[in-house]
Amino acid sequence: MKRNIAIVWGGYSSEIIVSEKSMAGVYSFLDKDKYNVYKVKITKESWSVDFEGAILPVNKNDFSFTLPNSESSIPFDFAFIIIHGTPGEDGRLQGYFDMLSTPYSTCGMMASSLTMNKFICNNYLKNFGIKVADSLYLNKETEYETKSIAEKLGFPMFVKPNSGGSSFATTKVKSEDKLQEAINIAFNETKDVIIEKFIAGTEVTCGCYKIKDKATIFPLTEVVTANEFFDYDAKYEGQVEEITPARISDEMTKEIKSLTSKIYDLVGAKGIIRADFIISDNTPYLLEVNTTPGMTKTSFIPQQIAAAGLNITEVLTEIIENEFDVN
């Protein structure tokens, strides 16, 4: 009998539009001969499932739905989480599914919570020799002066939501007179903000997943854009050149793959993650760890899977089936 797979998308932030694109990608990738695949949308207002064009409510008590004009209930056997941001990337949904003993595709609650907080995650990893940019953390209760921030980090610098992704509300700031505005923009997206020192160099990203005793680390992608940085338009509107494999030395490729594998273990990851780096003076600096990477047809992970000579449908099937083998 086919398992019922829920592609869980939506969320509570501006990233819902990216989540919808990733949901469509995952839906196209999953094996429909092996699974019954459903699109489950989660927002603050409702949880719903698209059943043959009808939008039906999801029962949160057991993660199921009832067929129209029937008392028959269909339980979801697995959640493929593709919500970027809260509540799908920060551990909240993971905790819910853990309580229901429903397997899911992403990292667990603790790893998701850790990696969602960029400042805490990067400073945690710094203790293990992972190089990261100098940074400052602000929440809405923090007392700060833009002058002291400028003196500490210098210009240019990045101001961005501490617990967001997809480059929403991220600003590259080149002068103090623009700093407060950038901080305000970031606070409009999340309740806390990270400000990072700018590092010039070559940006690359590396995907990875591990099951049982098998580790798969994908070829690196080099990110080249004429924009100020790899912003939303670069990521999702095609204003970027993505080169896989990256045009860097074999030695640097090997080092970044090793770092990605190390980071995977240090944060206690599960499923597919992506680690983003900037290479400056032949030294890789971690930018961030993404535990719910984009899965549109043109996203990094599908590109890297193809470059590795792998079949994405088989990779996602392997990740799903691994959760049933270990549970």
Rank of each mutant, 00 (worst) to 15 (best):
M1F: 07
N4H: 14
A6R: 08
A6C: 08
I7Y: 03
I7Q: 06
G11W: 10
S13Y: 07
I16R: 14
S19V: 09
S19Q: 02
S22K: 00
G25V: 03
G25S: 05
S28M: 05
F29R: 07
L30R: 04
L30M: 10
K34I: 05
V37F: 02
K39I: 07
V40M: 02
I42W: 13
K44M: 08
S48T: 01
D50C: 13
F51T: 05
I55W: 03
P57H: 13
V58T: 04
V58P: 02
N59C: 10
N59T: 13
K60F: 14
D62Q: 14
S70A: 10
S72E: 14
S72Q: 11
P75T: 15
F78C: 06
F80P: 04
I81R: 06
I83H: 11
I83M: 15
H84L: 01
P87V: 09
G88K: 13
G91H: 01
R92N: 12
L93C: 12
Y96A: 08
F97N: 01
D98V: 06
P103K: 10
Y104V: 01
M109D: 02
A111K: 01
S112F: 12
T115I: 04
M116R: 06
M116S: 09
F119P: 04
I120D: 06
C121E: 08
N127P: 10
F128W: 13
F128P: 09
F128D: 14
I130P: 01
K131G: 15
D134E: 15
L136M: 15
E141L: 10
Y144D: 01
S148V: 13
I149E: 03
E151Q: 11
F155E: 00
F155A: 00
N162K: 06
S167T: 11
K178F: 03
L179T: 02
L179E: 02
Q180E: 15
E181T: 15
A182E: 03
A182Y: 00
N184M: 11
I185C: 05
F187S: 07
K191P: 06
K191G: 11
K191W: 11
I194N: 10
F198K: 01
C208W: 14
Y209V: 06
A215I: 14
T216H: 08
L220A: 08
V224K: 15
A226N: 14
A226R: 09
E228I: 09
E237G: 06
G238R: 07
Q239G: 04
V240A: 05
I243V: 12
T244L: 05
A246F: 11
I248V: 13
K257V: 07
K257R: 15
L259C: 04
K262E: 13
V267R: 14
V267S: 07
G268K: 02
A269W: 00
K270E: 12
I273G: 04
D276S: 14
D276Y: 14
F277W: 12
I279E: 01
L286V: 03
G294M: 07
F300K: 05
F300N: 12
Q303N: 15
A307Q: 09
L310G: 09
V315F: 05
E321P: 02
E321L: 00
N322P: 06
N322M: 07
F324G: 04
D325Q: 13
V326W: 07
